[in-house]
């Protein structure tokens, strides 16, 4: 497990994850728990704090050159915010960075989110190992290209 995280980024490099909260939403317990779990899985996690704009998150992702972006939203504004996030990534030519979403997302919205370009949606109660394995898989796939 630890070895895999290491190998994917070559010697001395680890999977780098950006964990972000978008919009007017101050509830970041979930984001912090996921950040902590990913750190414990041997990844480098950058947490950008609450109430971020999509612009701030995309800019941070580019500067940190992350392998994957994880967003947490509990405010209900996920469709608008994620659309803007993906549009910005496209504008920067960085839409190859996989984006996943967690939070209180109504199930009927999930297909819409995937259509926008969100790779995966994790609902409340998701096992942390599942998120970890998902990242290992998706980053591994990207590196092979």
């Amino acid at each position: 497990m630890e070895r895999t995280a290491n190998l994917l980024r070559g010697r001395g490099r680890r999977i780098k994850v950006l964990v972000a909260k978008l919009g007017l939403d101050g509830h970041d317990r979930g984001a912090k728990v996921v950040a902590r779990a990913l750190r414990d899985a041997g990844m480098e996690v950058i947490y950008t704090g609450i109430r971020q704009t999509p612009e701030q998150v995309v800019s941070a992702a580019l500067q940190e050159d992350v392998d994957v972006i994880g967003v947490s939203i509990l405010s209900g504004a996920h469709l608008n915010l994620m659309k803007r996030l993906i549009d910005l990534l496209k504008k920067e030519g960085a839409d190859d960075i996989p984006v996943f979403l967690g939070g209180t997302i109504p199930i009927p919205d999930i297909p819409k989110l995937k259509e926008i370009g969100i790779k995966e949606v994790f609902l409340p109660g998701t096992h942390l190992n599942l998120i970890r394995d998902y990242i290992l898989g998706v980053v591994g796939e990207r590196k092979e290209h």
């Binding site: 630890e2 995280a5 290491n6 680890r14 950040a35 902590r36 990913l38 750190r39 414990d40 899985a41 041997g42 990844m43 480098e44 996690v45 950058i46 947490y47 950008t48 704090g49 971020q52 704009t53 612009e55 701030q56 800019s59 941070a60 500067q63 940190e64």
Partner: peptide
């Protein structure tokens, strides 16, 4: 775990853009 939580950026995020 050899992992890391990089939190310094959080306090400077206002300059991100």
């Amino acid at each position: 775990s050899q992992g890391a939580l990089l939190g310094d950026r959080l306090r400077m995020q206002e300059h991100s853009t």
